[in-house]
Nucleic acid binder design. Structure first.
Lengths: 138, 138
DNA sequence: CGTTACATTTACGTAAACGTAAAGCACCCT
DNA sequence: AGGGTGCTTTACGTTTACGTAAATGTAACG
């Protein structure tokens, strides 16, 4: 029953509601705020997360899935905020994204190789084990 | 005195030669030794890296490129050179390898998802940029 | 008014993979 | 003997992204 008044259409979430909604810990949200990735408003001593904060958090979490560092993400968010309609900034953002994509595809190719090699090792090992069993079955 | 005996074919490298050959630092090689990833022989106080060490280092570096932790790599290396005369141990080794393989395939699946998502973002973003350009080309 | 439930700040802890002094052998050259 | 070079060990420092107390505050429930 810690609800804010239901009549008051509250567009903000408490830290706990944020955690439940996005599956993060309070520590994470405070950490992001300390890194200037989020800037929730304060109601007294407590934080209230707005729509904007939620949008930013979604971008942060997606960026993390892409393997961007929080520092990369902060810069991307800053660029987005300053002027989303600045062509030069948009292009820089795309460049960063394309670089990451290239890295990820290279990583994917190497991973494929590693998987194939490991599979091969497994196959050979199992054949050796079968031989071992035939030999010791005397 | 310090001449290597002919039986010990001069097939070994000093730490510096290793560093040059594989583009790593002495610190790295000592660190790997402390983690039991390498076990160079000692000539007095100095290290001598054998063919086996070089082979292992190559595997280590490849594993790192694949994004595996050194602990993962250590386990894989054990798998590679274990002198499995013991069937139970062989089977345990295979289990480990299969687990790694499953992890790798899961990782690849995640990577695929992220790549697809990022590609989609890029495509949409570029379309938006094109629109933006047409609109501002008044 | 006391308890409960959540919130806050401060700040040390963690893991990986080394970097980076600091201080000392060991050997070669001159 | 002095100097230089390279190797050695020991051990604290660095980075990222938080975890985990500890001490305290605040608001509502009963």
């Amino acid at each position: 029953m810690t609800n804010p008044r239901p009549s008051e259409v509250n567009d903000t979430l408490t830290i706990r509601q944020m955690c439940d909604a996005y599956d993060v810990t309070p520590r994470t949200l405070r950490f992001y705020e300390s890194k200037e990735l989020l800037s929730p408003i304060r109601q007294g001593t407590k934080r209230l997360f707005t729509r904007a904060d939620r949008a930013r958090l979604q971008l942060i979490l997606r960026g993390k899935r892409f393997g961007f560092s929080l520092e990369d993400i902060r810069q991307l968010l800053d660029m987005y905020d300053r002027d989303g309609t600045n062509e030069a900034q948009l292009i820089r953002t795309f460049d960063l994204a394309r670089q990451r994509l290239a890295q990820m595809e290279a990583q994917r190719a190497e991973l494929d190789t590693a998987i194939a090699e490991l599979k091969s090792q497994l196959t050979m090992g199992e054949a050796a084990l079968a031989t071992f069993r035939r030999e010791t079955a005397a």
